[in-house]
Design a protein around this nucleic acid. Structure first.
Lengths: 304, 304
DNA sequence: TCAATTGATGCAAGATAGGTATCAATGTTC
DNA sequence: GAACATTGATACCTATCTTGCATCAATTGA
């Protein structure tokens, strides 16, 4: 197989049509250039330049090969640059998974942040449930997960990116909807729509712990997996619910959200989880960027 | 700049993810493969494979670079093959010029012949007048010309590809149109529509020579450059004409062609002209093909 | 704990690329 | 038409690179 150096020599010769001038442009003397061209012609088994002892001109094969060679060289330096960029984390691909609710709370600002600082990183977003996220993280199918704690996996590090208060969700036609804020005791005897223990263990534990601590007992509990589905049930009057602040982004018209009195010390977190060691420099770049950005903002602000 | 050999090594390693197996596939021992990969990584300035002393896996940069490398290698062997093909004349580009009339007589069968034997030669056809053809041939702007003799240019060789009889062209409403064949003496005293001496010297000399030899003198001569224009004039009753047999292909409805008595020994030739030495192997292939084909057919048959 | 396998490294031999000096051939100039 | 300049090719030497063999340290599996 011929060499890229030979191609570079040939392309320059094809442009100059003069061995000495081409050699000067290539920063070499004329004899090795002659030998490179000879080697190339011998390798391909065809005459590429017609030399008349005085003038040099391309053969039909040489003219075609010059174009192809130029393309190969262009691709080579392109591959060089692109790979350096990926290695430095300035470019590349990154896959981020997120829970449905965080798409309202944190993902929009994350995408904006990435687009601003790393426009050449290709971002793939994948909505998953938390158990799916843990599996994807363990098998390294995703670079970064946005999910609810805790993340009990080896060699995974987490950073809290969002801390939210809890809000009460009541139907718009419910008497409580007129209150500016709602005490958790008002839930006593009502139907509670909330997260199931298996699919949403974090929220489930938080809400049930909250009610137990306050000594409040709903008359019935309706388990629903996703926040937007819970709010949908509230909107049609199924019952009351406790949801994180970011649920404002997906509240239907029939449900209103009010500050929850009696849950002041309780809040829900959203964490960013990623492998401790990654082979993807773009991932490291994004993690560093997010953490730097969080640090400057106090890492506890809820997104609009 | 890195080497194609290094790329080949890296691509194979990326496929095998094992230095020894990759080295075996590359027909080399393992140490030089390790060195090639190291050199490549040093050249690019990035880690391409993550080696854990036991397993080898690609980094993000390495995965991208492997794809790009494969593409470069593919293009390299493609360039190799394509150039060999062009050099051997099996592929390439060829420009053939032709006179308007030969587009009916010879060009169709030439195109068919090329498409059959050299489907990967790109054919450019260019209609020119004979003086334009001579200039294009001298400046090597075309590879092959189909034109009327003589071709008085240095380093140009010609081959006769077609020899045709002459026919009489008369208006369909003319009394002579009823004859099966027409004697040249019948032209005496009629208007002759024929080729001008400057733009169509070959035909002009042939026709005038024919009439002089027969002692026939038209009452008037109308000069028109192209055969199809001459036949158009004949069709509307301007006069009579003498045209080559291949004019059958472009005769309008109002003109009829009949064998010409008294011109038996006279015929017109179409020759194929090309530079003696050409840098275009495709041209040589086409010339050889045409000559071989003519040889088997006796080189004098008029095309339909 | 021992054997097998992994990728990296030291070393010597061979191959290769590069430079200098030079040649034969062809234009150019006076 | 003869001297000169310029062209690409070649001979030869040196520096560098590449290769394969032998070997090493580390890890894995039995």
């Amino acid at each position: 197989m011929f060499t890229l150096v030979q191609l570079r020599c040939f392309v320059t010769l094809a442009e100059e049509l003069n061995f000495r001038r081409a050699a000067r442009r290539l920063n070499m003397s004329q004899p090795p250039l002659s030998r490179h061209i000879q080697a190339l012609e011998h390798e391909i088994g065809a005459e590429l330049v017609a030399r008349n002892r005085r003038s040099v001109e391309l053969t039909a094969a040489g003219a075609s090969f010059a174009r192809l060679s130029q393309r190969i060289l262009d691709q080579a330096i392109d591959a060089y640059r692109q790979t350096r960029q990926i290695a430095s984390g300035d470019a590349g691909e990154i896959t981020i998974s997120f829970t449905a609710l965080s798409s309202y709370a944190f993902v929009p600002s994350l995408v904006a942040l990435l687009r601003k600082h790393y426009p050449s990183i290709a971002l793939t977003l994948r909505e998953m449930t938390t158990p799916q996220q843990l599996a994807a993280l363990a098998s390294r199918q995703v670079d970064i997960c946005l999910l609810r704690p805790p993340v009990a996996l080896p060699n995974i590090r987490t950073t809290r990116v969002l801390r939210e208060r809890l809000l009460a969700a009541v139907p718009a036609k419910h008497p409580l909807a007129k209150r500016r804020q709602i005490n958790i005791r008002e839930f006593d005897g009502s139907v509670l729509v909330t997260y199931p223990p298996v699919e949403g263990p974090y929220f489930h534990g938080m809400v049930t712990g909250l009610f137990q601590a306050a000594g409040v007992y709903p008359s019935a509990i309706q388990y629903i997996t996703q926040t937007h589905a819970i709010l949908g049930c509230v909107a049609v009057g199924v019952g009351l619910a406790v949801v994180p602040e970011s649920a404002k982004g997906c509240a239907p018209a029939g449900a209103v959200l009010r500050p929850l009195i009696g849950a002041e010390g309780v809040h829900v977190d959203l964490v960013m989880a990623s492998p401790v060691e990654t082979t993807n420099p773009a991932s490291a770049s994004v993690l560093a960027l997010v953490e730097k950005h969080l640090g400057s903002r106090g890492r506890a602000t809820a997104a609009a």
